[in-house]
């Protein structure tokens, strides 16, 4: 049984004139937990699917999302995370193994939903031309080398990102 929704004119206004330049989103990814790594990658992959340009500035723990040895093993915090996948009294969040257990649960959720992993999202967004900025200060402070990062990451400072973001229509900090 199917039913046609409201008239299309209400869903989709008259198409606008072609734009002089594509829309652009500039994202900052500042967190390195599994749950916080997804949103900037989801937003960026959606933006390029809409025909926008997208760039993500990976800074502080967010740089782990570009780290070859770490991006497959991002974790969900069990401590101080009342929304975590395992509902525990906070004190138990510090028990050895609790972080691993919470991570395992979230991985299973994602896998059951046939949702891409973080490395798969990186590949999808890179293939679509998303710009990856790797924060040079984070690399210096945390001892991360260019060879530690996935291919295609541009090492850049805040000025280079702001130069990109100055022409963005949407900017988000995650």
């Amino acid at each position: 049984m199917t039913q046609t929704l409201e008239p299309l004119s209400e869903i989709q206004p008259e198409p606008t004139e072609p734009r002089s330049r594509p829309r652009r989103i500039a994202l900052v990814a500042s967190k390195g937990t599994l749950d916080q790594a997804y949103p900037p990658l989801i937003m960026a992959s959606t933006a390029v699917s809409l025909g926008w340009e997208a760039g993500i500035y990976f800074t502080f723990y967010g740089l782990d999302i570009l780290h070859k040895d770490r991006f497959e093993n991002l974790k969900v915090a069990s401590l101080a995370n009342p929304s975590g996948p395992i509902q525990l009294p906070n004190i138990l969040g510090a028990v050895p193994g609790a972080t691993a257990a919470a991570t395992k649960v979230m991985r299973k959720w994602m896998s059951d939903a046939r949702f891409p992993t973080i490395p798969e999202f990186i590949e999808m967004t890179r293939d679509l031309g998303v710009t990856f900025f790797a924060c040079s200060t984070t690399m210096g402070v945390m001892g991360v080398e260019k060879s530690d990062l996935i291919e295609g990451a541009d090492i850049a400072g805040a000025a280079a990102f702001l130069d990109y973001a100055a022409d963005a229509d949407v900017s988000l900090f995650v």
Binding site: T2, T4, L5, L8, P13, S49, G51
Partner: peptide
């Protein structure tokens, strides 16, 4: 998506 991409949504059916 069609609005942003400037494609045309011809019809929608909800099952």
């Amino acid at each position: 998506m069609t609005r942003q991409r400037q494609d045309t949504l011809v019809s929608v059916e909800e099952g």
